[in-house]
Amino acid sequence: MKITRLNGGCIASSYRLDLENKQTIFIKTHSTQDFNKEANGLRELKKANSIAVPDILICRKNFLALEWIESGRKPKNFFKHFAEELAQLHRYTSDNFGFYEDNYIGSMTQENIYDTKNWQDFYYHKRLLFQIKIAEKNGYATREFSKAFLSVEKKLVTLMEGSENIPSLLHGDLWSGNYMIGNKGQAVIIDPAVYYGNREADLAMTMLFGGFPMLFYEEYNKAFPLANGYEKRIDLYKLYHILNHMNLFGISYRSQAITMMNNLGHE
């Protein structure tokens, strides 16, 4: 048996475990993170029978063992197939927004339990307002910051006008660091922050921190056309993640959040 510590990941410690029977296992550990939340998210994603996710081998509160994903080469049509599979994932729906349990977005608690069929209500209370309250607790909410958020609050109905009110299954934290290319050239999604929400929110996250190529969005829209005006709502959904990064990593993200909120509030 051989254990190798892996680089990358800013939250959990990760390892490769090579067993004597030639099986390879991926292991994550953390002293306080509850990996049952991640495991439940992976199980939920698997229900959609769309994008590949790692199989769960063992899960304990502070320990998660997953199948090892052997990396492959990115085929020419990778993003076309990835987009089509994400569209299929988003066709898997629920009756209500949220999820049956709270989980994590990074190492931050993500509140999901909220009995509502109204997307605007859910997004305001459980995504934006939740992060704003943490920002206030952290001492990040300057007068300028609070004024900018107030401008978003006042225009929220207008900003979300035309969006779908369908609870789609979302990865929840789908950026370029949370997918892999499997040994057959397929997309494999990892580290989810699963809930049922508006699918535009998943797409917005893919546009942050490096983003996906334009082909991905073109193919997604062919497979599952988006509601009119979705481009105007993308920054509203990016805002949740920028606020979360500010609350996790500090005020270096505050100016970006303020600019984003001011732009949204004055559209």
Rank of each mutant, 00 (worst) to 15 (best):
F122D: 12
Y124S: 07
E136G: 00
Q120I: 11
Y124M: 04
M108T: 06
K133N: 13
E136K: 04
I113S: 02
Q110P: 06
E111S: 11
N118T: 01
K126E: 02
Y124I: 05
K117W: 08
N138T: 02
A148W: 11
I113C: 12
E144Y: 08
T142S: 15
Y104Q: 10
G106E: 06
G139T: 11
Y114M: 09
E111V: 07
R127I: 00
E111C: 08
L129C: 02
G106Y: 04
D115Q: 13
I105D: 06
Y123T: 01
Y104N: 09
M108P: 00
S107C: 07
G139L: 10
Q110H: 06
G106M: 07
R143H: 14
I134T: 01
H125I: 05
D121I: 01
Y124D: 04
R127D: 11
I105Q: 05
Y123I: 02
T142K: 09
A141Q: 11
R127E: 07
L129Q: 14
A148E: 12
F130D: 06
K133W: 00
E136S: 01
N138E: 11
E136C: 03
L129N: 09
S146F: 04
N118R: 07
K133P: 00
E111M: 12
L128I: 09
R143F: 14
I134K: 01
T116L: 12
I132L: 15
M108Q: 10
R127A: 08
R127Q: 05
G106I: 04
T142N: 12
D121N: 07
I113F: 08
L129Y: 06
T142W: 11
R143C: 14
M108S: 14
L129T: 00
F145Y: 12
L128W: 01
G139H: 08
Q120D: 05
D121T: 03
R143T: 15
Y124Q: 09
H125A: 04
F130T: 00
L128D: 02
A135T: 02
Y104A: 08
A148L: 10
F122G: 07
K147D: 15
I105K: 06
L129F: 02
I134S: 00
L129I: 05
N118Q: 12
G106S: 08
K137I: 05
T109S: 10
F145R: 04
I113Y: 03
K117V: 11
F145D: 03
F145A: 08
A135W: 05
N138Y: 05
K137T: 10
S107Q: 11
K133T: 00
E111H: 13
G139F: 11
K126L: 09
Y104T: 04
W119S: 05
Y114W: 07
Y124W: 15
S146V: 03
F145P: 00
K117I: 10
Y104F: 14
F145M: 13
T142Y: 08
A148D: 12
F130Q: 06
T116I: 09
Y114S: 06
E136Y: 00
W119P: 03
K133R: 13
Y104C: 11
S107L: 10
Y104R: 09
R143P: 08
A148C: 12
E111D: 08
L128A: 02
L128T: 03
W119Y: 13
K126N: 05
T109Q: 12
I132K: 12
K147P: 01
R143I: 14
M108A: 13
Q131L: 02
G106F: 06
G106H: 03
I113L: 13
G106A: 09
F130P: 00
N138R: 05
